[in-house]
Computed example of a mutant assay.
Amino acid sequence: MIAERTEQADLLAGLRPDQWDAPTLCEGWRVREVVAHLTMPFRASLGRTMLDLAKARGDFNRMADTTARHDALQLSAADLLACMRQNIDHRWKPPGGGTHGALAHQVIHGLDVTVGLGLDRRVPPERVALVLTGMKPRNIKFFGTELDGLQLQATDVNWTHGTGTPVRGSAQDLLLFVCGRRLPPGRLSGTESP
Rank of each mutant, 00 (worst) to 15 (best):
D89I: 01
W159Y: 10
T66G: 15
H161G: 05
T99W: 10
G180L: 03
C26K: 02
G180I: 06
L147F: 01
R168P: 00
P94M: 01
D156L: 05
W92Y: 15
V115W: 00
L188M: 04
P166K: 10
F143G: 02
R187N: 07
V113S: 01
R187P: 03
H105M: 07
T114V: 14
C26Y: 03
A54I: 11
R182H: 10
R122H: 12
L111K: 00
A22M: 08
Q19C: 07
A68N: 08
P23K: 09
N87K: 10
M135W: 05
T191V: 11
T165C: 09
L150Q: 09
A68Q: 05
L15W: 12
L103I: 04
L175I: 03
N87V: 10
G47N: 10
A68K: 06
L73R: 15
D21Y: 04
M50Y: 03
Q8E: 02
L117P: 09
A22I: 08
G116H: 00
P17V: 06
P166T: 12
R127I: 15
A22H: 05
I108Q: 02
L12M: 04
L130H: 13
C83L: 13
V123P: 00
T165S: 13
G118V: 01
L132H: 05
G101C: 08
T155Q: 05
R32A: 11
R32V: 02
R168T: 14
R91H: 10
Q106Y: 06
M50D: 01
V113R: 01
P125L: 05
L176C: 05
L183K: 02
D18K: 11
L15F: 12
C83W: 13
I140N: 00
V31F: 10
R57T: 09
F177K: 05
M1P: 13
L12A: 10
T133A: 12
L176A: 06
P95L: 14
A3I: 08
L130E: 15
C83V: 14
T165I: 13
H109R: 04
N139M: 12
K141R: 15
T163V: 12
I88P: 01
A82I: 00
R138M: 11
L176T: 00
I140F: 04
T160H: 05
L147N: 00
P194H: 07
S76V: 11
A171K: 03
R62K: 14
R62F: 06
G134R: 07
P125W: 08
D71V: 10
D71G: 00
E192Y: 05
R62H: 11
G96S: 06
L75T: 07
H90V: 03
C83M: 14
M50R: 13
A56R: 08
E4P: 01
P194Y: 01
T133Q: 13
D148G: 12
G144H: 09
L175K: 08
S193Q: 02
N87S: 11
F143I: 02
V107W: 01
E33K: 01
S45R: 03
K136H: 07
R43Q: 13
G47E: 04
M40Q: 12
K141Y: 10
E4C: 02
V178F: 03
L11E: 02
L130D: 12
N61Y: 11
G97R: 02
S170P: 01
D21P: 04
P125A: 12
T66W: 14
P124L: 12
